[in-house]
Design a protein around this nucleic acid. Sequence first.
DNA 1: CGGTCATCCGAGAGCGCTCTCACCTCCGCC
DNA 2: GGCGGAGGTGAGAGCGCTCTCGGATGACCG
Lengths: 344, 344
Amino acid sequence: MTETAPRPTLEAVAARAGVSRATVSRVVNGGDGVREPLVERVRKAVEELGYVPNQAARSLVTRRHDAIAVVVAEPETRVFADPFFALQLRGISKELTAHDNQLVLLLTEGRDDHARVGRYLAGGHVDGALVFSLHLDDPLPGLIQRAGVPTVFGGRPGWSGDRRGVVYVDSDNRGGARDAVRHLAGLGRTRIAHITGALDQTSAVDRLDGYRDVMVDADPDLIVEGDFTPSGGERAMRELLARCPDLDAVFAANDLTAAGALRVLRASGRQVPDDVAVVGFDDMLPVAEQTDPALTTVRQDIEEMGRLMARLLLRGVDRRAGEPVGGAPSSVVLPTTLVRRASA
Amino acid sequence: MTETAPRPTLEAVAARAGVSRATVSRVVNGGDGVREPLVERVRKAVEELGYVPNQAARSLVTRRHDAIAVVVAEPETRVFADPFFALQLRGISKELTAHDNQLVLLLTEGRDDHARVGRYLAGGHVDGALVFSLHLDDPLPGLIQRAGVPTVFGGRPGWSGDRRGVVYVDSDNRGGARDAVRHLAGLGRTRIAHITGALDQTSAVDRLDGYRDVMVDADPDLIVEGDFTPSGGERAMRELLARCPDLDAVFAANDLTAAGALRVLRASGRQVPDDVAVVGFDDMLPVAEQTDPALTTVRQDIEEMGRLMARLLLRGVDRRAGEPVGGAPSSVVLPTTLVRRASA
DNA sequence: CGGTCATCCGAGAGCGCTCTCACCTCCGCC
DNA sequence: GGCGGAGGTGAGAGCGCTCTCGGATGACCG
């Protein structure tokens, strides 16, 4: 913790370069309309003084902050613990950095925090928000919409409010699930079970829908609710085996769930994939590659989702700032691909 | 993405309340020295107009941003994928929120980013920085120190630069390791092996030192380098079994490593803890509780580490702002506790 | 009832930057 | 050679806030 040094101002640079503040400002912001020799002199002065523009002063007049809030609702902090969110955040960070935007992280926890986040966003401290809140009936999306800040959601928001102008980026959960189940069916399996994710999240609901799309009149006993965790997967698998000992395939809502299911299957003496074929979802490498046998799963490009969210948002922000860049941005659903490994 | 509304200014509130800007400002910032009836009138006006102070304008004059940067060096992004960093971040977030500070997240990737981060911090956009960069010879800590921003490190920084005034928060890795190994020795084990973490991180080095403290003249064959991952643990365990088939205990540098080691031990037909006792480090619940058998491990309060880092930093920031709060903050090493489960 | 303080409030000067607008220079053209 | 215009540059007015300082107000005492 060292001492504060007085930072040089535009004024100081102007004086040193023997020009006006306006000229220095022009050079610092791209340098259009300034003749070469002057540009050079200003650059030199900036260099020598170690000048860095004062963002606060700049924001005050431009009304831009070059900062984006990433809002993560509490329940997601769990998700945080799996690589999923970390990867998305990384994609976001890369994209924002590439456009000289800062990432302000807001983790929320309970109702009070919602109000706080709402106030913060409404306060105009950031140019936009990326929101992760995929739970049904979460008040956050509504609050945020009211705050009037450009927003992109991570995953289809599952709330029942006004849908107009809502932009989100999601994987094709339903299509991916269909592919997974079709793959199992293609293997000749007929008793295909599904362990769902936490059904208060849209991704879990969509994957279940995808399963149902293919298994139009599936035995309801073949569907058990999980919660995206390995222990949830174990529990669900045990229940499935008790209910339907004749099942010959399992589509798990994510890789962690599949990992739990695999453990239980092995413990029950069943061979994977010979007796029971298993497909997961996510293709989280550390998990999918390390299960025994390696997991066949549905891959989604998570980092790219993050990138895309940021890109979409920045476009929206610019548009709003008066630089029309085509029509209003609309939601994007990214395709998934089935990755075949040993488990199915 | 809705439309921008013109936000009310201090001026507007003042007009509505029939007072001067100065008075409104006083009320907004705590309201000392303003008589009750006026306070009331101003509050009402603020409420009615939905006034939110413009942070940029405020920062411009106060030179405070109420924002803290959290810098995570790239290699740590992996760590990110385990719950460790997520938990720390949560602790940080809570503490910052409680003090009305924002969290600006900076993920770095390679040299270019270092420069960028250095510039950002030197640019005085934030009041302080929390830095996670525990790798030997990382240039980042040096850069940051030069930027002259109050900084607290997460974990003992392992770099060889100027150490004066460096503040960090760390677990008692060495002491925890000693406890683990002593516990194994207390169980009557004599051939106690150690799978290290990635030795370019100080935590791994410290844990190894703790192991050596107890096993003063350990057979060097009993020490194998891991990398904090399950697969690294598996590899190391296989090598250990090849080298020292007579080992009767393993101290793994973290829980993930231990999980990998357990798998290999089981595959080799050894009983845990009867044939080989195993102790991990971290007490990451989702891992430690789900291994088979449940893992005896060294617990560290990760969230509290994050909290503490933030608290220390804020104190330093305030101090610097001219409110002396006792002496210079100094580093803190948090105690660890051994959690006995089934594996040792 | 006048004087003395303490207390409360308002006027006004910036914080460091951007951006408009007027001015100035210098070129090309008739 | 004079004049229009394009292209560069600088002066100055704010952006919305904080904070100092002087003036007004009322309490209290002699």
